[in-house]
């Protein structure tokens, strides 16, 4: 039953794990360790001072805040898009399905420039919002738009296979038991897709935190208002303030890591709570099978 027994049915565990570790070391661990080593030249007090500077704090707020809002928007609308693509057959479905992947492929700078043009006060979409007194481009709202754009495919592509997996019988069963459409969605469908939705949300969120290319074209990049942390790091580098840039990067790394860890734990809980066997029952279950 247990997969961690010494004689695994699948051969090559040592080789593939070794490969995984080397690969991850070369690409992720060593660069990140270098970053931390560089910041080790600073004392914690120095790092604290740099990270809590007004400009740095404002940039953290913008980066994490806008990323969070964008990921939430993607979670909501991505669910609808995935639902439509899985559940209904309509003319042009394949085309729309392909369209979803576009933000993956498009150079982010192109996306940023396009969005900035469209959502500017003189742009095709922006002028309508301008009439209502809402400025999108060159404000934090513009950052949210750009981050929503680049995060969309993550949610849709994570949800699609899970939605396809839900048998129509489950919904029919709920209906014969007297559940309304809304009750069926809230009690049956949503809990089934929730772990996947959380995964998609996490992916979109992490992607948004690290995004640089598209944001700088639409953000306006005003310090304290619409400046994201990656941009602040770049501007520090341009002033040869390597230590300051490293300190900011390390702080961002730690915050991102803690947040992703928390979301991962939540996800693990969400997907495992209906599989876990209470310890006292484990033996009985083993016997019953």
């Amino acid at each position: 039953m247990s997969r961690s027994s010494s004689h695994s049915v699948l051969p090559g565990f040592g080789l593939s794990l070794g490969y995984t570790l080397v690969y991850l070391s070369l690409l992720v661990l060593i660069p990140l360790a270098g970053l931390l080593a560089k910041s080790a030249s600073l004392t914690l007090a120095d790092i604290w001072a740099i990270a809590t500077g007004p400009r740095a704090l404002a940039s953290f707020r913008v980066t994490f805040g806008a990323s969070f809002i964008a990921a939430c928007l993607n979670g909501f609308f991505g669910l609808i898009v995935a639902w439509v693509l899985v559940r209904y057959d309509f003319w042009g479905k394949r085309f729309i399905d392909a369209l979803v992947d576009l933000p993956f492929a498009l150079p982010t700078a192109v996306a940023g420039i396009t969005l900035a043009t469209l959502y500017a006060e003189t742009g095709v979409i922006g002028e309508w919002f301008a009439k209502a007194g809402i400025k999108i481009a060159y404000t934090p709202l513009g950052i949210v738009v750009a981050l929503t754009f680049i995060g969309l495919p993550f949610v849709v592509r994570t949800l699609q296979p899970v939605l396809e997996d839900i048998e129509p019988e489950v919904e029919e069963a709920a209906a014969t038991l007297g559940a309304s459409r809304w009750q069926t969605f809230r009690r049956v469908l949503f809990p089934a897709v929730f772990p996947a939705l959380l995964t998609g949300f996490t992916l979109a969120f992490s992607r948004a935190i690290g995004e640089y290319g598209s944001v700088i074209f639409i953000a306006g990049n005003m310090p304290l208002i619409s400046e994201i942390t990656p941009l602040l790091i770049i501007s520090k580098l341009e002033q040869y303030d390597f230590v300051g840039a490293t300190a900011l990067a390390s702080v961002m790394l730690v915050i991102s890591f803690v947040m992703l860890l928390a979301i991962n734990l939540l996800q693990w809980w969400a997907s495992n709570r209906h599989r876990s066997v209470p310890v006292k029952d484990a033996a009985a279950l083993g016997g019953a099978q």
Binding site: E167, E169, V170, E172, A173, A174, T176, R187, V188, P191, A192, H274
Partner: peptide, 13 residues
């Protein structure tokens, strides 16, 4: 009351 061939139980409950 309807009973399905493949049970159609709610997996997360």
């Amino acid at each position: 009351g309807f009973v399905f061939q493949h049970y159609a139980l709610f997996r997360h409950m």
